[in-house]
């Protein structure tokens, strides 16, 4: 059981089965880690914003650095028009980051390693950005699919490609995060398995790999949260400032 590198992604019910109509909304280990992530985010940022001292303490510094980091990221990629969406992108970044990081603790469950979770997030972003685009520009938003400066002969082809690339945004966004998380955790599990099966003689090599991979995976956990947030900003930028 434990040797199977995919068993870490199993979702299982905690407590009784809860059913609303035909839907099963039981509390699972995935739900547990979503709650853990959100509660720790709220706790940290609540502590970090409670006191307003001129010289911030560590937790306040952490909260304020994250705030300025995300706000700079948004203003750099999507400009000042994206300010109303700051709270959403901040929540998104923090949620993905904390879920990824919680997954790095041994014996935990990684919420973002499930395609359904990342896909729901990505689909929400996709639909939201599209709605914002149509509200801001009306049908002019369709100009997004018609890049300027393209020869008329190539235009039908380009428009088709643009539409496909636009529609594949939620898929690429969700699969990127899910696949990164799943691959990294699977690989770590496999190397961990090697350590056990090779024993005291041969286990040192995969163990050192495992250590290195842990560092790499922490980096990836941060990087994927960052990429997720920054791609959201870029999509938002397309919707807010129609450039083509």
């Amino acid at each position: 059981m434990a040797a199977n590198p995919m068993s870490q992604f199993d979702v299982y019910r905690i407590g009784p089965e809860i059913k609303v109509g035909a839907f099963d909304i039981s509390f699972t280990n995935a739900s547990l880690f979503m709650i853990l992530s959100t509660v720790s985010i709220l706790l940290i940022f609540n502590l970090g914003s409670k006191k307003n001292s001129i010289l911030p303490n560590k937790i306040q510094l952490l909260a304020e650095l994250s705030y300025t980091f995300v706000s700079k990221m948004i203003s750099d990629t999507a400009g000042s028009k994206a300010k109303p969406y700051f709270a959403f992108i901040f929540s998104l970044f923090m949620f993905v980051l904390f879920c990824n990081m919680f997954g790095m603790i041994p014996y935990t469950f990684t919420v973002t390693s499930h395609i359904i979770v990342t896909f729901v997030l990505a689909a929400f972003i996709f639909i939201g950005v599209t709605v914002i685009g149509f509200i801001k520009h009306g049908f002019g938003y369709l100009k997004l699919f018609v890049p300027s400066g393209v020869p008329a002969v190539l235009l039908p082809l380009i428009v088709v490609i643009e539409i496909i690339s636009y529609l594949s945004r939620p898929i690429s966004l969700s699969v990127r995060l899910f696949a990164n998380m799943m691959a990294g955790h699977t690989m770590m599990k496999v190397f961990g398995g090697f350590v056990i099966s090779l024993g005291i003689v041969g286990g040192w090599l995969p163990l050192s790999f495992s250590v290195a991979l842990t560092g790499l995976e922490i980096l990836v956990a941060f990087l994927q949260a960052y990429v997720f947030a920054i791609l959201t900003c870029i999509y938002l930028n397309d919707a807010l400032n129609l450039h083509h």
Binding site: V11, R13, F23, D24, I25, S26, F27, T28, A30, S31, M34, I35, S37, T38, I41, L42, A87, F88, S91, M94, F95, V111, H114, I116, V117, V120, L121
Partner: peptide
């Protein structure tokens, strides 16, 4: 099997956090 549950809890926790 647990897709609906995950979506439900995701929307709940993320929504409250947001």
């Amino acid at each position: 099997e647990f897709w609906v549950s995950q979506i439900f809890w995701l929307i709940l926790t993320f929504g409250i956090m947001y």
